[in-house]
Design a protein around this nucleic acid. Structure first.
Lengths: 252, 252
DNA sequence: CGGGGGTTTGACGAACGTCAATCGGGGTGG
DNA sequence: CCACCCCGATTGACGTTCGTCAAACCCCCG
């Protein structure tokens, strides 16, 4: 880490994005540079800030560069359902232009950094970046898969299974983004957020986490999660790694 | 209804499909005929038949012409989650070609009739049917919206609210397809299917329906549902009619 | 008349939510 | 440096919702 020479512009910050895209399709060098050069039009958001409002139109495609966000909807009586999380490397507002009204709001959960991804869409639409176009399509497919996984958790899994399954999902996604290893990853979520994602009460999330700790399946300290027995967690929660990396790639 | 002359080919059967598409975009006469002329390549399926297997590739876009189907996933221990229902007029397997692996399986719940919709996609891709292309895009958006509604039900609503909300959704969709009125519609689902959709047990679905009947909110007899007090049901379940018909249409 | 799938009912228990109090750590102003 | 404070985590007691098991019922059909 000590002063290694970096010839290219904009070295580190978009690392997660490039990494992520490369797991989705085989990007050419030019395509990778296209991504790395997005660094302008960066934006910073504070935790709690709403990035996209429900029903909002004219949204521009963006990447999360650092920090966490979520898609959610809030009922009039205050109940909240979180549909999914946006991690570094994830894109949002990627759809046909002009973008239709947003189906839910997107909210920053931590300090957050994003970049405009429209230049990529334009290049892709002009046919200049076929693999990139494909990567974005696959990203949407993965997003959809995660949504269905989440729905199974909510509808047909117990609290215990839900938490285990969800932690495994985060582990995989964060490892792909280069932000964790096969067991350890940052988890900057309050138990209230977990509860609203998993369809549980705060108290019950707490107890479920306690149980997983007691059974030496996980550790959880100061924003870091450690999966002590990932395989056991996977069999407990019927976790099947969709997209083990490139599973969705087109053959040729 | 007694022998009114119908000049065009293939009169009735695709009515639901045309109706549905017309609520999604303003179709030209040619575009409507394009839809109506799909009648070839019709296919019949029996209840229980799997139309699409999880992970299946090379799927072709299709419309449901009559009957009901659902998207679902089954866990190894037999638990099942139904993600949503396909009603007459709905399309499935509509996505960029070549189609990525299916994220869940699609199963016929009743005797079912479908038609191949690929000709429409091709015409749309050739730029020959812009409004149709738009209608298909909106259809996907609506499908996504229904998915999120369903997730809110599963994660944050009580059994009572879930059933009420779900019945209202069906009422709206079936009325659009021309298969029901503002209160009455066919409901060819067993309580087991309802349970697997709503994340409940059969017994609890039964009791919830009993309660709704006792309170004179609904009637349910021999495959027909009647919403006696739709407004009350809506306020009970916080039902907000997304897409009150054409809400998602592009301004110009 | 018998059978089978779907519905209904009751009794019971487990999972999960609610309420309320306490704890604990990091930040902040005095 | 310390007292305070606030938010989030934790714990206990208790109530409700919902699931499970099992039996009865109902209706359509052969």
């Amino acid at each position: 880490m000590t002063g290694r020479f970096k010839p290219r512009i904009a070295p580190r910050p978009l690392d997660a994005v490039v990494r992520r895209m490369r797991t989705l399709a085989l990007l050419s060098e030019q395509e990778q540079d296209l991504v790395r050069n997005l660094s302008d039009r960066r934006e910073r958001h504070m935790a709690g800030e709403e990035l996209v409002g429900e029903g909002q139109t004219g949204r521009r495609a963006r990447f999360v560069v650092s920090g966490w966000a979520c898609n959610q909807r809030v009922l009039p009586d205050g109940r909240r359902q979180i549909f999914g999380f946006l991690l570094p490397g994830d894109c949002f507002n990627v759809c046909e232009r002009p973008a239709p009204p947003a189906l839910c709001s997107t909210v920053a959960l931590t300090a957050l950094e994003t970049v405009d991804a429209e230049p990529l869409l334009e290049a892709a639409n002009r046919g200049e970046a076929p693999s990139l176009a494909r990567a974005l399509a696959v990203a949407r497919q993965v997003e959809q898969a995660l949504l269905l996984d989440h729905m199974v958790r909510l509808g047909r899994q117990t609290a215990y299974e839900r938490v285990a399954h969800f932690l495994l999902e985060l582990q995989r996604r964060l490892e792909i983004a280069g932000l964790g290893d096969s067991q350890r990853f940052p988890l900057p979520l309050t138990q209230e957020i977990l509860a609203d994602a998993l369809g549980l009460s705060i108290v019950h999330v707490n107890r479920t986490l306690q149980q997983l700790r007691r059974e030496r399946l996980i550790e959880l300290r100061s924003g870091v999660a450690i999966l002590l027995q990932p395989d056991l967690l996977a069999s407990i929660s019927d976790f099947r790694p969709t997209t083990p990396t490139n599973a969705l790639r087109r053959p040729a």
